[in-house]
């Protein structure tokens, strides 16, 4: 037996090693081919194509100056009743000859419950606007003398949407709006840090829409460096 050790030196790559590698490698490729699209399908649709819907609330003449109205409407008629939203709309009259509105989202800035007017809601004066496409917008006058309050954990807001008490971390979100052919249209929702002043003269610290409970200003806002696309 002369070459006993030289046999050890030969770099051996036996068939079993090859089969082991092939099984693991091929299994990994097949697993990846299946997993990647499936995971992508589970996650991606929640973040892509999130669009805002513009909503027609009807003629601005229907909004009495200085009075809040509870407006309920569907943001995505194709989705049906789940897409029904509520906003508190107040006509502020004219500012430099242009109509001015305060449009507060009813989504509590704490964890998203529906805030309610602290005061009477005049159900008997409900107005139902028929909008093109068979949609309905309901307008009910209200007198939120005590601002707005949240039923869930008692968050309180004044009539500009500023937080006055309770756990919310910022003011109520607002809707952008436009006037088209004499009708009031809702646009994007945005978040608000604080509002100074009132009505047409309010100075609004405006931020991109953030989820309920997210700080938009101050040091705590550093906790939320990026937000997913809201549309």
């Amino acid at each position: 037996m002369p070459e006993a050790e030289s046999e050890e030196e030969i770099d051996r790559f036996p068939r079993s090693k090859f089969l082991e590698g092939a099984t693991l490698g091929l299994g990994g490729v097949i697993g990846g081919l299946v997993t990647v699209p499936v995971l992508g399908f589970a996650v991606a649709p929640a973040f892509l194509h999130q669009h805002t819907h513009n909503v027609d609330l009807g003629p601005i003449g229907d909004f009495t100056e200085g009075q809040f109205v509870v407006a309920t409407f569907m943001v995505d008629p194709a989705a049906g009743e789940v897409s029904r939203r509520t906003a508190y709309v107040r006509n502020n009259g004219l500012l430099k000859n242009l109509p001015s509105f305060t449009i507060l989202s009813n989504r509590c800035a704490h964890l998203g419950c529906p805030v309610q007017p602290n005061g009477p809601i005049f159900q008997d004066k409900e107005k139902i606007q028929k909008i093109k496409g068979g949609l309905e917008v309901r307008l009910i006058p209200t007198l939120p003398a005590g601002g707005f309050g949240c039923p869930c954990h008692g968050g309180q807001y004044d009539t500009e949407g500023n937080r006055t008490a309770g756990p919310p971390v910022r003011a109520l979100d607002r809707y952008e709006y436009s006037i088209r052919n004499g009708n009031l249209w809702l646009g994007k929702t945005y978040s608000v840090g604080k509002v100074k002043g009132q009505g047409a003269n309010a100075q609004i610290a405006k931020y991109p829409l953030a989820g309920p409970g997210e700080h938009v200003d101050g040091i705590e806002s550093w906790l939320y460096p990026v937000d997913p696309p809201h549309g």
Binding site: A46, F47, L111, E214, P228
Partner: peptide, 21 residues
């Protein structure tokens, strides 16, 4: 929304749970 208040990834978690905005 409670999940959404977790730092950094919270807003992504809540949007995933909702399946949208």
């Amino acid at each position: 929304n409670l999940n959404g208040t977790a730092p950094i990834l919270g807003p992504f978690l809540s949007q995933f749970l909702r399946g949208g905005a």
